[in-house]
Design a protein around this nucleic acid. Structure first.
Lengths: 335, 335
DNA sequence: GTGAAAGCGCTAACAA
DNA sequence: TTGTTAGCGCTTTCAC
């Protein structure tokens, strides 16, 4: 092990409690001793053992970020924002990937019960209508903040984007550009955010007097091949849609792939709007019109809320709800 | 707090040590008591406090992954691979971002001195010729494994790709396609991997009888705007190169951006090969020929090596060196 | 086969 | 102002 308080105390022939207090800059300790201790500690490159103090009811200094995946520009940017705030606050970030698997999510969450982390930031898995594990966590003393993919049933702070409006805007944009037959590609009936986006989409459909039956909703999965097959089927159908809203980045890029494969030109044959956070959107062929989500900001904000809860134990943030708007960035896929 | 061993012992009116042993399936404990304890623990949803046992010389169960950034498909895939192995082994992954800043890297590493993590996986910052903090870590009992961006001076296990050969292949591929004047875009004079790639590039230049002076090496930075300006200057010069090797993903996409801005056609005016791990490469305009690095595999392998060291304390892996080859994927940027 | 007790590094009453 | 001591949850000798 490294240098401990005990060793410093022994070397300096003083009590451990004196050292402990000096290191925490207690007013009880004289300037002289404080200086002597601080200097020696610095010289010895003392670093406190975080887990020893966590045992004494203090914090471990670790927070958890639970995500469906990391190979998605939305989530990686969110991590970026979270890590930035955490580093600033002296906290450490643990990353967990659920790969859209509820049972993994459950076992991950359940491991948090005994002090591993002080707080949890999370985006839930799709296809999940179980929320016991989340409710349990929410009921514990460990603060929980949802970001992006929230679980509606569970009481917890949440940071989301304006999903309903974005879905509406995406559809309306396609209609404005002349599309007559839209399709919305969702990923799950159980995911609040895509349901919101879908609801916005449907509102635009109705407002424009379109027939909902002719403007279908497709449900994609976590399996690339089956998504491709499904989108292919959609785009080969007699009544092929001429405008598509991709509710998450993955289905938007998969739609691109299918269009390339079927030799459908974007935007001539099909116009596409995708929810996305791609840095390199401008380089795609053609560059996609996107609903660009404030991923970095959402991560940052979620982390800030969490730290607010961590710093002042009293605050109850369960009703906190922050909405950070997305932006429709027009590019060549909807010319 | 949650349920502790102490509580279980009290409830069952037995000694804490008995409970502890039963939970670790010690042979000292009778089947009966073991069963009774295990059942009760399960019922109470007992989860051990990981940090209490870490204090007793045991492991915390946490490993650190230190990266320059996460918004890069190479690093996010690497995290994916690392997290997969870690979850399997029951370890937890802490992510730290250095943003190419040595001082951040130093303070992050120095925080590892006192038990926060059991082991470290890392890709070093560019522009760093200081390695004291890495040497210190390497000398400590905390095992260290470099992946991708290694520090040559520091003794530690390393997992890399075949950088030299990949650089050579990239240049040779451009030459095969008819390029007469190449450029290599590096990111740092201090980064072993890009230096290796550059050395391979230079070998191809020499072997083909090209004049090194007319096939320049450019050094990009971490600042997007200045890179764009630099690449712009290169591509506007009288002796504009007709073939470019981008040594990391970022400079490759930046080169694309510049070509679009200057109305240079790829591959007619300039051919491009980029080191990259982009999932959606096929969708770019035009689709780029890439040196595709085995990011996921590298992460997995690095993690496996680390766990090998963690499980058997004796092993010294400082000389371990694993090379996982990259693959040149030909697409339309070098037609 | 079970239990009592010491101790990991640190904090916080309480005593001096 | 400084020191003594107990204890956080757990593991591990060593007694019984």
């Amino acid at each position: 092990m490294g240098v401990t308080i005990k060793k410093i105390a022994a070397d300096l022939k003083i009590a451990v409690s004196t050292v402990s207090k000096a290191l925490r800059d207690s007013h009880e300790i004289s300037q002289d001793t404080k200086a002597r201790i601080l200097e020696y500690a610095a010289k010895m490159e003392y670093t406190p053992n975080p887990y020893a103090s966590s045992l004494k009811g203090k914090r471990s200094g670790n927070i958890a970020v639970v995500l469906p995946e990391v190979a998605d520009s939305f989530f990686s940017s969110a991590i970026d924002g979270i890590e930035e705030v955490a580093q600033q606050k002296g906290y450490h970030v643990m990353v967990y990937l659920t790969h859209e698997d509820v049972s993994r999510e459950q076992s991950i969450i359940r491991e948090f019960r005994n002090g591993r982390v002080d707080g949890v930031l999370m985006s839930v898995v799709a296809n999940d209508n179980q929320s016991n594990h989340l409710d349990e966590l929410s009921a514990s003393e460990i603060p929980l903040v949802f970001f992006d993919r929230v679980c509606e049933k569970t009481k917890a702070a949440r940071v989301v984007t304006d999903d309903f409006d974005s879905g509406y805007n995406a559809a309306q944009h396609l209609i404005d550009k002349g599309c007559k037959r839209l399709a919305f590609l969702s990923v799950s009936r159980d995911l609040a955010i895509t349901n919101q986006r879908q609801a916005g989409f449907e509102k635009a459909i109705r407002e424009n007097g379109f027939d909902p039956k002719k403007n279908p909703i497709g449900y994609c999965s976590n399996d690339e091949a089956s998504n491709i097959a499904q989108i292919k089927k959609l785009l080969k159908s007699k009544n092929r849609p001429d405008g598509i809203v991709g509710s998450v980045e993955k289905v938007a890029t998969q739609t691109y792939t299918v269009c390339h494969a079927l030799n459908l030109s974007i935007p001539q044959d099909v116009r596409i709007v995708g929810f996305s956070h791609l840095q390199i959107a401008a380089l795609l062929n053609p560059s996609p019109t996107t609903i660009t989500q404030p991923a970095f900001e959402m991560g940052k904000t979620a982390a800030k809320i969490l730290f607010k809860a961590l710093e002042k134990k009293k605050i109850d943030l369960k009703n906190e709800r922050i909405v950070i708007p997305s932006v429709l960035v027009e590019r060549n896929s909807t010319l």
